[in-house]
Deep mutational scan, measured.
Amino acid sequence: FHVTIHVGDITFHIHGVSEEEVKKLEELVRRGADWREIKKTIEEIEK
């Protein structure tokens, strides 16, 4: 999957994300995680 996440003024683009990881990111966004937490999760996914 290709994912784009907008957190305030920050936009993250992630490529090659599995469905499971998409759900993890959706959950973070849904519970209102700040951009640092989302960035950390994205960095883990990209490894």
Rank of each mutant, 00 (worst) to 15 (best):
Ile14Met: 08
His6Tyr: 09
Glu37Met: 03
Arg31Glu: 10
Gly16Ala: 11
His15Ile: 11
Trp35Leu: 12
Glu37Ala: 03
Leu28His: 02
Arg30Thr: 09
Lys23Leu: 10
His6Lys: 11
Ile14Ala: 06
Phe12Thr: 02
Ile14Thr: 03
Arg36Ala: 14
Lys39Cys: 11
Val17Glu: 01
Lys40Val: 07
Leu25His: 00
His13Asp: 10
Glu19Val: 11
Leu28Ala: 05
Gly16Trp: 13
Leu25Arg: 00
Glu37Lys: 03
Glu20Ile: 12
Glu27Tyr: 06
Ile42Thr: 01
Glu19Gly: 11
Lys47Arg: 12
Ile45Asp: 01
Lys40Asp: 11
Val3Met: 13
His13Asn: 11
Glu19Trp: 15
Ser18Phe: 06
Val17Thr: 03
Glu44Phe: 04
Glu46Phe: 15
Gly32Thr: 02
Glu21Phe: 13
His13Phe: 12
Trp35Asp: 04
Lys47Val: 07
Glu44Leu: 06
Ile10His: 15
Lys24Thr: 10
Ile45Leu: 12
Phe1Gln: 12
Ile42Asp: 00
Gly8Leu: 06
Lys47Leu: 13
His6Ser: 11
Ile5Val: 07
Glu44Thr: 04
Ile45Asn: 02
Arg36Trp: 14
Thr4Ile: 14
Thr41Lys: 09
Gly16Gln: 07
Lys39Val: 10
Thr4Cys: 05
Ile10Ala: 08
Gly16Ser: 11
Asp9Cys: 12
Val22Gln: 08
His13Ile: 13
Lys47Met: 13
Glu21Ser: 14
Ala33Glu: 04
Thr11Lys: 07
Glu20Val: 08
Arg30Tyr: 08
His15Thr: 13
Thr11Phe: 09
Val3Asn: 03
His2Phe: 08
Val29Asn: 03
Leu28Phe: 03
His6Met: 12
Glu37Cys: 02
Phe1Ile: 09
Ile38Pro: 00
His2Lys: 12
Ile5Trp: 02
Arg36Ser: 15
Arg30Gln: 15
Val22Trp: 14
Val17His: 02
Thr4Glu: 08
Arg31Pro: 03
His2Trp: 15
Glu19Thr: 08
His13Thr: 11
Thr41Val: 15
Glu20Asp: 11
Glu44Gly: 05
Ile10Lys: 14
Phe12Gln: 01
Glu26Val: 07
Glu43Tyr: 06
Ile42Val: 06
His13Glu: 13
Lys24Asp: 04
Ala33Arg: 02
Val3Gln: 03
Arg36Glu: 15
Ile42Glu: 00
Glu20Arg: 10
Val17Phe: 15
Ile14Gly: 01
Val3Ala: 07
Trp35Lys: 02
Arg30Lys: 13
Asp9Leu: 08
Lys47Ala: 14
Glu19His: 14
Ile10Asn: 08
Val29Ile: 10
Arg30Ala: 15
His13Cys: 11
Glu20Trp: 11
Thr11Ile: 13
Lys24Arg: 13
Val29Lys: 03
